[in-house]
Amino acid sequence: MKTVLEARQVSKIFGGLVAVNKVDLVVPEGAIASIIGPNGAGKTTLFNCISGFYTPELGDVLFNGRKIQGMLTDKVAAMGIARTYQNIRLFKNMSAVENVMVGFEPHLKHGWMKAMLKTPDYQKEQKHIINEASRLLHYVGLAGLGDNLALNLPYGAQRRLEIARALANQPKLLLLDEPTAGMNPQETDAMKDFIRHIRDDLEITIILIEHDMRVVMNISDQISVLDYGQKIAEGNPKEIQANPRVIEAYLGPGAAALSEKYRREKTHDA
């Protein structure tokens, strides 16, 4: 299968702190890849290295075989990597539709002259992106809310608006940073199905940072576990669940043995 994103020995250092330490990551096309790990493990930092917010001190980030580290974020977005944020970051004082319309920016061909003269092709393009943005809002379940200011939308709607804005970039790779944070179980389930739909309908590869293990184990094709900036495990959900290092990272040293014992007792009971 074709590889969409490849990170080779990526390291990011803040002062004396190695936030991401020689991480390798290979994401095949059409996969839903999850990155998990305890708080402060470097997950978001890795995201920032991929989406161009940070330039890693060492290592390469390849998108469809092209090196992208060091590129400005708008160029990265134009190449086809879109992302959402852990703490929602919308353009708060713009309406929801406008938020999505900004997402079309990398694909617009207008200039200030054409906007000034309102040439027919400019008008056609504008009409097109208004239609597309409305359709995207409909797709994420926000039909009819488009003219509200982003800051007036409820929390769950803001999360989905962020995804709509990212989809407007027409990405090939979508980075979702804790898309279900702060949601109740029903909303989380809906979001989980929605993520799978994005992948299936739009054929977008997805990398996910997520804390909710039910989501992660349910939809991931591949899970990478970070701890203290290092990748300590990788594999499909089953492998990760059984990996003693992962359990140790989450629950502390000695936990793996305990959990093994617990499981044995449980099977014994059954």
Binding site: N131, A133, D147, P154, Y155, G156, R160, E187, F194, H197
Partner: peptide, 26 residues
């Protein structure tokens, strides 16, 4: 003021399985 731009959409997509959440914490 922000202009009103949203246009109604014909159902050309499969309806996405999302409950029309109004709530969630804000």
């Amino acid at each position: 003021r922000r202009p009103k731009l949203e246009v109604p959409v014909e159902q050309d997509h499969e309806p996405v399985p999302l409950p029309a959440t109004a709530g969630g914490e804000k």
